[in-house]
């Protein structure tokens, strides 16, 4: 009973936070709403007795991803007001499509009788269970996932690291190779006349 109440509480906050992400004018508020949504999802995982997933969500998504988003949003000079210009015109269509999809999903999914009851409270801790299957049963997907991360890494470097002509860079070897003759000129300056090239 209490669990049910908590479930509805956390889900309601998650949904409201998700709406807030899309609708808030200030994009920093959007990211903060996103963090709220993550946190409530973590709470939902706790209700399912998946404490490891909840902890991961808090650490990885709230701790790392959302903070990264926040940095990006603060550093990028993008006028979101500009992007949002067409919103009012497209809103009716968007709401209509969303409502139709939602109605269909509700009709279809309300007919489900979950054939697999949620796993009974396990005697083995959740982290241990995940560890056992992640490196055995799911060994290959795990390795492939690491390749995906590698590609993401390569991609990030490929797309951002480049030699731009306008940037002045320090080339230490050239600096060291400069001789006294190239860089120093001794000029005798007569008083009252100034230096001349």
């Amino acid at each position: 009973m209490v669990t049910d109440l908590l479930f509805y509480l956390f889900s309601a906050i998650t949904v409201m936070a998700a709406v807030g992400v899309v609708t808030s004018r200030n994009q920093v508020h959007s990211v903060l709403f996103l963090i709220l949504a993550f946190f409530n999802t973590a709470a939902l995982f706790i209700l399912l007795q998946a404490e490891l997933l909840a902890a991961l969500l808090v650490i990885v998504y709230m701790g790392a991803v959302a903070v990264l988003f926040l940095f990006v949003v603060m550093m990028l000079d993008v006028s979101f007001e500009e992007l949002r210009k067409g919103m009012i015109q497209h809103l009716p269509l968007g709401v209509f499509v969303g409502a139709v999809i939602l109605a269909e999903l509700v009709v279809i999914l309300s007919g489900i009788h979950a054939p697999h009851a949620p796993a009974a409270a396990a005697t083995i801790p959740n982290a241990q269970l995940i560890g056992q299957v992640m490196f055995t049963q799911y060994l290959l997907p795990f390795e492939v996932a690491s390749f995906i991360l590698l590609v993401a890494l390569i991609g990030a470097v490929v797309l951002t690291h480049r030699r731009r002509k306008v940037v002045k860079r320090q080339i230490i070897s050239e600096q060291l190779a400069r001789t006294r003759e190239q860089s120093v000129a001794l000029v005798k300056v007569a008083s009252g006349q100034g230096a001349q090239q």
Binding site: P141, V144, A145, F147, I148, V151, A152, I154, G155, V158, L159
Partner: peptide, 13 residues
């Protein structure tokens, strides 16, 4: 899904 993501991510870049 993982194969699809590996392929797509490379092609996006």
């Amino acid at each position: 899904y993982l194969g699809l993501e590996l392929m797509s991510l490379s092609i996006y870049v």
